[in-house]
Design a protein around this nucleic acid. Structure first.
Lengths: 231, 231
DNA sequence: CGACACAAAATCGTATACAATCCTGTTGCG
DNA sequence: CGCAACAGGATTGTATACGATTTTGTGTCG
């Protein structure tokens, strides 16, 4: 367990490390609370701590990693409070953005979204739950891209990644097919260029998501004895 | 002009440097396009380039600074496109947030907002336009704080700072008193705990702001010959 | 005189060295 | 035997050194 293979693809820059780590976090290969040692990451990617620190700094600005002074970097563990805030922000941004996207939707965009849903289904069938979760998030980011709002896209992208952490911590049900259903309904609205329908569907989709979480405040700060054994 | 005094307050950490620079940018003491040399900043604050780079990285993540590889860091110059996007994002976030804030408003909050408006007016009278602009932005951030949504507050705070850059680049009118008027109207709605009114006022306030900008696409990429002499 | 080539200076990119802090295991004392 | 003090090791924080790239200045040739 102490060994960590080197990723010999070479050419790792700060940004690519960020993308790689973000994806690993998003796919739950790096669960909340995981320690991200600087030397360890440096060895893994074959780069010095300088680049690693820049990457960790970037991830901390996106609230995916928590930096504790003189203690190190850890995959973030969003609180119940933070979870509610993230979905509140999403509910302000995503419905209206879906509306805009529906009006700008091209056939190529529709094909892309369709492929996304197909891949997600395939991943689920193959038991690759992490990849499915990632693709599910990409669906939402893609909508912001189609809406042609890169600033909002940046925000949504961050919120999606944080949502993945929230799901890792607070997911209740195990039935995961509700996701693809909602996305399929959205796709129909997009195909019809029906902005109002898309907006409404996105709104209820987000409500369903929150409802599928267990956000009761019970045992909120249980992570008191130094993060409850780091996990 | 080549001299730069050292800021001898000591105890500069990465975050405090970020705050200091962000405020300077927000107040237009550092106009868009200004070069932020690493050695220069390091000397100014009495810290090494390591900390400076961390600060510049943070500012670049907030889109207040643009990093050009092997060229250096520059105060960002938002494009017309980006300007529209920023205000689109604000129009999605701020009205509903103002609604929430109105319902949670305490008397202490009202006093704070009132003081803010008073200070802004005083700054304007004293000819401190930069400080007035900063306070004007703080008004909006404060609303998000009162709404008790720190995630949204972070987004709005970034958008406000970026708006300051946009104003520096695209401001049209010189009459600046429209600002305090709108804020005063909002304060009234807050005092009445009237969420709907606050939401509506915020929405039109943002529309007024956009209307006061000159966002015609004419001469959009005039900054072609290496940023048109860096300014 | 103008254009190109080359050299020098300045600035950024990355790695590494050293200091500071924290964690852990051990020792000594009550 | 239990607890506190201390020492060793590990990890992060910061500064600095060095290499890479860009910019700028200079000289030569057409």
């Amino acid at each position: 367990m102490g060994t960590m293979n080197k990723i010999e693809t070479k050419g790792w820059t700060s940004d690519t490390v960020v993308s790689d780590l973000e994806r690993a976090i998003h796919e739950h290969r790096l669960p909340p609370g995981t320690k991200l040692g600087e030397d360890e990451l440096g060895d893994a990617y074959g780069i010095s701590r300088t680049i690693v620190r820049a990457a960790l700094l970037a991830l901390s600005h996106r609230h995916l990693v928590e930096l504790k002074r003189n203690r190190g970097a850890f995959v973030a563990q969003p609180s119940v409070r933070e979870a509610r805030e993230v979905f509140e922000a999403r509910s302000l941004l995503e419905p209206r953005t879906a509306h805009s996207a529906a009006l700008r939707m091209t056939d190529a965009d529709l094909r892309l979204l369709n492929e996304n849903i197909r891949d997600e289904h395939a991943a689920l069938d193959a038991g690759e739950n992490g990849r499915a979760l990632f693709l599910s998030g990409q669906f939402h980011v893609e909508i912001a891209r189609i809406a042609d709002q890169s600033t909002i896209e940046t925000f949504i992208s961050e919120l999606i990644s944080r949502s993945s952490l929230i799901i890792a911590l607070y997911w209740r049900r195990r039935a995961a097919l509700c996701e693809t259903q909602a996305h399929h309904a959205l796709l129909d609205a997009f195909a019809n260029r029906d902005g109002d329908a898309a907006e409404q569907l996105m709104k209820s989709h987000l409500l369903d998501l929150v409802a599928s979480l267990d956000l009761r405040n019970v045992s909120q700060p249980p992570t008191s004895l130094r993060e409850a054994l780091q996990r």
